[in-house]
Design a protein around this nucleic acid. Structure first.
Length: 360
DNA sequence: GTATGCTTTCGGC
DNA sequence: TTACGGCCGAAAGCATAC
């Protein structure tokens, strides 16, 4: 079962101030450069009717809504996190195994408690929705299926406030008409390659000989596509541990080509990211830098070390080295800069053995 | 050839 | 007609190893 909180940030704002909920509500990330510079994080369904959606410029959203009584609000991540934590606790209590994905989504393995009975799973989903609504006044959309792949797609077809159940015998009818793009793992490039093979829908993909898929995409991807098109997926619902990366990015007050200006800003971000690393008692093995140029093209560089460390000086030196490298290789003006630590491990068992101790 | 791991880019929210 | 965040994980693409 996949539970997805509907237009989460905007719905949280509606809960905080119910008087806005019949109006277009647009939650924005303001960059602080000019009055309306920044992008839309998410919008409620009233706003979506006007073409306002995640990622578009705030000024464009304002234009689309210029004749409406729309509400523009800045993101309040702390507030959303509180609500999310409360809801995730509710969801966890209804699952055999629980896997949170991002701030507004979670997989619930309910096989045991429903004894694999889809009617019981549907009943449980209604209980969960009622629980979330009663305790946190928010709606969600739920997909139920034989595995994560199907549950995820099911949750997407009917929202907001939807419940979609796909039983094993309904798999083909449900999946066949969908575009291949709906399958996790199929992006723009693979979509193009499949189109060249005359494959546009999941049903068509299921008709392709598995050997041909293996020949074109390799064994791993080929067999994955073959199985996914049939709704076969063995990925277990798994409790997630620590995040895989910690990053910060910010928009500069003014564009610059100067390494020193970029480094100054980047070092501030390093301090924040490093503080978060320490708070979670983690070590990093990879350092990345990120630069959005004046023309909005994106550039990044990264470096991975042999052994995990928590050293701040190493972090900053590496950031400097990577920005030097990037600026040497590209003639760009920096608009936004960011830093990231990844390949994170807990402080204990930090040392991966080079070879296994016994055997081979 | 395929597997694996690293780097860079993409895309969802 | 343009306009443009911050964060995350996934995908793509490559190099190297087997």
């Amino acid at each position: 079962m996949l539970v997805d909180l509907d237009y989460f940030f905007a719905q949280s704002e509606e809960r905080r101030n119910p008087s806005i909920k019949d109006k277009p509500v647009v939650v924005c990330v303001y960059s602080g450069r000019t009055e309306d510079s920044g992008a839309v994080s998410t919008a409620n369904y009233v706003a979506r009717k006007y073409g306002v959606k995640s990622g578009i410029p705030i000024s464009l959203a304002k234009q689309k809504l210029k004749d409406e009584d729309a509400v523009f609000l800045p993101v309040d991540k702390k507030f959303y996190h509180q609500i999310s934590d409360n809801i995730m606790e509710i969801l966890r209590s209804h699952a055999d195994v629980f896997e949170q994905v991002g701030i507004d989504e979670a997989y619930l393995d309910v096989t045991q408690r429903t004894k694999s009975d889809y009617q019981q799973a549907e009943n449980l989903a209604e209980i969960i929705r009622a629980d979330v609504l009663a305790q946190e006044q928010l709606t969600c959309s739920i997909g139920i299926g034989p595995n994560k792949l199907v549950a995820k797609i099911a949750a997407d077809v009917q929202k907001p406030d939807g419940l979609t159940v796909v039983k094993p015998h309904e798999l083909n009818v449900f999946l066949s008409p969908l575009p291949v793009r709906r399958l996790v793992g199929i992006g723009k490039i693979i979509e193009k390659k499949l189109e060249a093979l005359g494959v546009r829908t999941v049903g068509q993909l299921a008709q392709v000989d598995v050997q041909l898929l293996v020949d074109v995409f390799g064994r791993k991807l080929g067999t994955y596509f073959h199985n996914a098109s049939r709704g076969i997926d063995d990925e277990p619902v798994q409790e997630r541990g620590e995040p895989e990366s910690v990053s910060r990015i910010s928009t500069l007050k003014n564009d610059t080509k100067e390494l020193t200006d970029i480094i100054d800003e980047a070092y501030k971000l390093c301090d924040e990211v490093h503080a978060r690393l320490l708070k979670r008692e983690l070590l990093y093995r990879s350092v990345s830098i990120y630069l959005v140029a004046g023309d909005l093209s994106v550039h990044s560089r990264s470096k991975t070390f042999e052994n995990p460390t928590r050293n701040l000086i190493t972090f900053k030196e590496t950031v400097k080295e990577l920005f030097e490298k990037l600026l040497n290789e590209n003639d760009v003006v920096a608009r936004r800069v960011g830093v990231k630590l990844s390949n994170l491990t807990k402080k204990e068992n930090q040392q991966k053995p080079l070879t296994s101790f016994f055997g081979n």
